[in-house]
Design a protein around this nucleic acid. Sequence first.
DNA 1: TAGATTGTTAATCGATTAACAATC
DNA 2: TAGATTGTTAATCGATTAACAATC
Lengths: 220, 220
Amino acid sequence: MRTLKVPEATITRLSVYSRYLSKLKKQGKITISSTDIAVGAGVNPAQVRKDLSFFGEFGTRGVGYDVDQLNWDILKILSLDEEWTVALVGFGHLGQAVTMHRVFKERGFNFTSIFDNDPNKIGTMVEGVEILPSERIEEVISKNKNRIGIITVPADAAQGAADALVKGGVQAILNFAPIHLTVPQEIELREVDLAVNLEVLTFHLDIQRQGYSRPLSFIR
Amino acid sequence: MRTLKVPEATITRLSVYSRYLSKLKKQGKITISSTDIAVGAGVNPAQVRKDLSFFGEFGTRGVGYDVDQLNWDILKILSLDEEWTVALVGFGHLGQAVTMHRVFKERGFNFTSIFDNDPNKIGTMVEGVEILPSERIEEVISKNKNRIGIITVPADAAQGAADALVKGGVQAILNFAPIHLTVPQEIELREVDLAVNLEVLTFHLDIQRQGYSRPLSFIR
DNA sequence: TAGATTGTTAATCGATTAACAATC
DNA sequence: TAGATTGTTAATCGATTAACAATC
């Protein structure tokens, strides 16, 4: 077994490259250079080649990469050559946004378990899936064999949702609630914080007022 | 003027610390150590102290930090001591999720311009704000003096939305569309990619199958 | 004074990028 | 062969963390 040290950032970029390649394919493009991928993804060309080099050789020197082939290779690396069934806890606005999000469908994610505690929502069908109360998370998740859980509940309910998901047997959690969750070591946890991203902007906008200069690395 | 090299990651963590401090304050906690902040934010204690050190000295040796004071100090650093008015383009599920999101209200963000091209939505009021067609972005943004724009339209409409926001005079853009946008250098751009975050999880879950080992830095 | 905890330096660690040989 | 572009090494750059003096 090869042992590689793949940076987390490499994985996120591979996902971006792949989506850009899908788009290029629709446009009928056959081959592409690392420079062009870099432009599409907003990164350095050397970065693109380095990222790919963790997983093998995918291009042809002097020529570039085959758009379709490279896309498939990356999808394979990301394990997107299989179908994934996902559980979602919290069918509020954010939960609805996630389940309906075009990009998740396009990339083969299937929401097979949906939970919410609103009595008006429980029992409702969402694209063939019944909304269930969160007390049934453990039971239903393990029945449906969901390996990934997405949390879109308010902050104060998020840890409870995570605990239930873990009990039900998920191996990975994507948390959108604005709170840091504690999960067992072996569970993959990824936290996406909407407010933080907005607050990084406010920091930068008033940077002159406060007299902090930006590091060179911020300059695009 | 002091010249500091503040890592982008420091800013995101400050935002997380601040939210955790708000929570602690509600719980009646008066002082806190860097170790406890670190636990709440899921980072290293040295990291917390280092992050703060870019901006000054906020604690008392041997004692710790005053919860409320530190929170205000961080809010000041992030420029959250002022009100921010925000423009949103795309009032689909994701746009609704963002405007309704509790955390944005709590942190003082005010959506004063909302755009969507759905004829059924145009003219509708959302908490006192009328939904307008996106051809009016430039005009309305500059009238409302929005400095920040949030993009929650589908990928193929995102660049157009960004261009209009820039023409209207926004200084920062938060992009949720799954595509890399091109904006003038002086515009702060932050891209939050929902699909990417899910695909990082699928990569990790099938890592054994493929035989890639995870770097030590991944181990929590 | 003893114990606790900050603020900061220096070491470590990791990620990005430039450069270039390999090769189509 | 000349031009183009990859794959990879080595250098650079930046971020994290350990350690400890300062000090409450």
